[in-house]
Write a protein that binds this DNA or RNA. Structure first.
Lengths: 127, 127, 127, 127
DNA sequence: GTGGTCTAGACCACG
DNA sequence: GTGGTCTAGACCACG
């Protein structure tokens, strides 16, 4: 698991994306224990507050569960089928902007299709 | 042309996206004059500096041309075929994150494909 | 004689540079008559005020002479040997900045030397 | 580091030139931290916005890297070998104008050569 | 009229 | 603490 300190994407969001990706790929499964906040912070060379923020957000969206005094775990009832319309709309807006950029860089519809396909495949099991 | 004051996306970036989208859809064509900074600022209820920042960014990427003391125009030699590898890489990263979110919302590969197709179509001429 | 409306260099300065260059190359000689302000303005598709400003500046630096009611001429006693220390300092500063940019673009000392040589040659008689 | 408030050169451009010059001379090296926007603004008696504009421009050209919430640093992979043809053309035009001025001040080809040589040397390590 | 720069602040998210 | 965005204005050169 790696973090890019130079990215303009906030560190805590990078941590969230990373964990979600690991769940999706099957590297992390329901019930698996996550490293403690301090341990994870050390591994990534960030402050504990940053990891805490990521964990809180993941807990809020029910991807992980914290058992006080024990540890943090991937939620046992993790459900990937909840649809959040507000969020969907936001993602669509952002996706639209990125498509716009791709088109401005000279990509044809087929190029875009292919790119999406490729990115999608990279996300499913095994990097 | 509208701006969403509540969006977490900076106003000047929204202006940029809007203009790019209008060019792509054919509402704005090479040589067309854009509203002056002050006029656009009034219409959008933002400060002139915010519009100026958007225009300057568009100028740097060669989408518009400004003639000091005269006005701002869609570039006559607008070229959408320049490829910028650094930028492509950044877009791929962001796209990956958005795909991730879509999958978490329960979308199948076909759903994603369909969504992209739909967004793409919305970008081409006529909303 | 051409003017670049898109340049960020003021039009009147472009006119000044153009005339100076023509004198240097021998296309314009002491005593030669320049087009009237209105005529020059039409030829360059600029407003007469812009040409007037250029002529005034050239007159101030003794490169041209205006004889009221007759016309404007290249100064008969044009002297290219006046040294203006303030101006020299200003030019040195700007030159330094441009050298800086060239070095940042990867030019070696020899590359720079060669470039200057080439530009210098282009300035002397015959383009 | 000094700024000339009376110069007709914009303050933020002066800041940019200053930093580039310091990098070239080896006073600033890859990884070095730059003063924060506010600190630099105070030292130069300008507004933070002006320094921010300079830093952003330097970031766009990959000379510095900023880590949001942490600070601004000289790029670790600073690369001076990127060639930008549009920019080169613009610099050549400006250089031509400056050579023109030098010739008008009575400089011979040798004088010009010498001047360039001297300016070039001043740029390399140690003032 | 136009765009460009700048001030003197404010508020924000991130760490 | 840091950088990023934005306001509400000012002044400037150019045309």
């Amino acid at each position: 698991m790696r973090i890019d300190i130079k990215s303009n994407k906030p560190l805590y969001e990078q941590i969230i994306s990373n964990i979600k990706e690991n769940v999706l790929k099957g590297y992390l499964n329901p019930g698996d224990e996550l490293p403690s906040i301090r341990r994870m912070a050390m591994e990534l060379s960030v402050t504990p507050g940053t990891v805490a923020k990521a964990y809180q957000e993941l807990e809020r969206t029910k991807i992980i569960e914290t058992i006080r005094g024990k540890g943090t775990y991937i939620a046992s009832d993790i459900d990937m089928k909840r649809v959040d319309n507000d969020k969907l709309e936001a993602i669509e807006k952002e996706l639209t902007n990125q498509l716009l950029e791709l088109i401005y860089m000279g990509m044809s519809k087929d190029d875009v299709r292919e790119l999406i396909e490729r990115l999608y495949e990279n996300l499913k099991k095994e990097d």
